[in-house]
Design a binder for these strands. Structure first.
Lengths: 245, 245
DNA sequence: TAGTGGTCTAGACCACGTA
DNA sequence: ACGTGGTCTAGACCACTAT
């Protein structure tokens, strides 16, 4: 039997109603109050029970479908997925991820340089050739061990200075400068470690590395950052959830 | 200047209006009719121009935001992203991807076995221990070269037979059996090739491989497939797009 | 203040799957 | 035939940003 969850809504809150509803059910699913395979209340019944319009209720449910917690089948109904996902994919940086997981990340800034962009970097950042660009190379540590070697390029106009970079992550620094990253294109692959990479990451030369290239955009659609990262294969992976809508 | 795109709608078509609208603008962006950085028509104007309601228009725009082609900024407007994404991430299999790219994939089925599931596989497929499971090991070729070594486990009740597997991809076979995959959880990492993997993939032992583990669910939330794939790092990568909503 | 996107309402009709 | 999700309408009010 599917339990009927009590949902308390705060209409004076700035948090959207659909989000409040989604949160309650997300928690119920992850807590196990709603079990894998359980039938979910249908939209109309739920809307009526919560005194909400159907579109608002529908949007709440859709949030959970997009997160991979619910599955809908036309003409049939909505059900809780058998193995609800553990880690939703979000638009955060590695630093944020680790900080949230309580891993106490630390960053060593190996290089921080300002200068005219090479043709390749100018193109990747969508800047005119020769524009001022900050190049940074950092070693991310976690649990006392090297985890990732990260090379990033940013337009000099928005790049955080070296001190700030040491304290916070790159993304956090950008946020505090009013730059809001809204979109990222990533390419994930693998390669063998070069000699210098291996040395920095405490791996053997030709050890397998997980590599990620990322281009990040702000809410005006401008390129904010291009990064090329290499992770120790033994210590990192990417989780993704794909939904067919 | 932002050109005003003419949009022809077919209200008798089974294709949703929001989708028809989204398609027209997606094509315009990818064709370059709408250029990176261009201001996009605002919702209300577009709705009125197309004689559509605002929610329908909004949904069309949202589709393109989710695909990483547009960026919206509250109080400001909507703009075309500087470097529109080339490959949207979809819920398809490698076979579908390659077929679409005209690479003429071919699959060699190395192993096809039916038998009781091990404890680990039973758990991954959310089946009772000892349930009948099909284990398949396949080598995917592309352009005459090995590309990926794929090991998959499926409940015997829905698994395609060996012949069908050779002809079509796994996902296409499942679709033709009425199994619709709606959700996939993926974990992407890297590792060094084992001796047997290296031999099959025409790589040296310890060569870097890109590995992906995937659990796929159907529209009832049941586990349909668990797969563990290894790709030659030199020949494959994953593209993903993340959007902050 | 004007213009934009973000949210919300209260209905409606249709398509699909199951019984 | 019935119940479900999928789509669509025609409005409304609010929050944020720039001028």
């Amino acid at each position: 039997m599917t339990p009927t969850l009590s949902v308390e809504l705060d209409r004076s809150s700035p948090v959207p109603l659909y989000f409040q509803v989604a949160q309650v059910f997300e928690k119920a699913i992850l807590d196990g109050q709603l079990k894998p395979g359980d039938r979910f209340e249908n939209e109309l019944a739920l809307a009526s029970r919560l005194s909400l319009s159907r579109p608002t209720t529908r949007r709440a449910i859709q949030e959970l479908v997009d997160k991979g917690l619910l599955v809908r089948k036309r003409g049939v109904g909505t059900q809780v997925v058998q193995t609800p996902v553990h880690r939703p994919v979000k638009l955060t940086s590695l630093f944020d991820d680790l900080a949230r997981a309580g891993q106490e990340p630390a960053t060593k800034v190996l290089e921080y340089a300002v200068g005219p962009a090479s043709d390749e970097i100018a193109e990747r950042l969508n800047l005119q050739a020769g524009s001022e660009v900050v190049t940074m190379r950092r070693l991310r540590m976690s649990g006392g061990q090297p985890l990732a070697l990260m090379t990033n390029y940013l337009p000099a106009s928005i790049a955080p200075d070296r001190d700030e970079l040491e304290r916070a992550g790159l993304y956090q620094s950008l946020r505090s400068r009013g730059v809001h990253i809204r979109l990222a294109q990533q390419r994930i692959g693998a390669k063998a470690a070069e000699r210098d990479e291996a040395k920095l990451l405490d791996e053997k030369p030709k050890a397998p590395l997980l590599v990620m290239e990322r281009t990040a955009f702000d809410d005006s659609g401008r390129v904010v950052e291009y990064g090329s990262h290499a992770y120790r294969a033994s210590r990192y992976y990417f989780d993704t959830t794909l939904v067919d809508r």
